[in-house]
Simulated scan of single mutants.
Amino acid sequence: MFALDPRLEQDTYALGDFPLCRLLLSKDANYPWFILVPRRADISEVFQLDDNEREQLWKETNFLSETLKHCFAADKMNVAALGNVVSQLHMHVIVRRRDDVAWPAPVWGNKPAIEYSSDQLSEVRQRLGAVLGDDFRFVEA
């Protein structure tokens, strides 16, 4: 049974679900920083997904990346599956802009995280709701 890693649960807002992945938003308003987590138990590596799930992960990652690039006027999209601290398979999809607080350096540990206000969080949900389509289901805020 799928359960979100406690660290991911603590550090993110759950936004909703694609067919395979739960979409999370990092609790760092410095950057539009999203995380896709396949809703599968005990998965830490992409190769542990079956062929169809792997294909679906890339479809959702690519769709989200393209959507966010336009929705948040990205100069560059950073996409990575790391997992040295949280082993549960998760894909970071981070909007980078030349005017963000860390450009061009990596986002990890560069600047202190800034919590989203309720208005900012509502705005992110509204922006995404207008473009994510029928395959995405928001979870309750």
Rank of each mutant, 00 (worst) to 15 (best):
D42N: 12
D42W: 04
D42I: 05
D42G: 08
I43F: 01
I43S: 00
S44E: 14
S44W: 02
E45D: 14
E45N: 12
F47H: 15
F47E: 12
L49M: 02
L49S: 01
L49P: 02
D50K: 13
D50W: 10
D51C: 02
E53D: 14
E53I: 11
E55Q: 09
E55V: 06
Q56G: 02
Q56I: 13
L57F: 03
K59H: 11
K59F: 15
T61Y: 01
T61A: 15
T61S: 14
N62V: 10
F63G: 00
F63Y: 12
F63I: 02
L64D: 01
L64E: 05
S65D: 07
S65L: 10
L68E: 09
K69R: 14
K69L: 03
H70T: 14
H70Q: 12
H70V: 12
C71Q: 08
A73T: 08
A73K: 14
A73G: 04
A74H: 04
D75W: 11
K76G: 07
K76R: 15
N78H: 12
N78C: 03
N78W: 10
N78Q: 03
N78F: 12
V79S: 04
V79E: 03
A80N: 05
A80C: 10
A81V: 08
A81Y: 04
L82S: 00
G83R: 10
G83K: 13
N84V: 05
N84L: 09
V85K: 05
V85Q: 06
V85L: 09
Q88M: 13
L89A: 01
H90S: 01
M91C: 09
H92T: 14
H92V: 14
V93L: 10
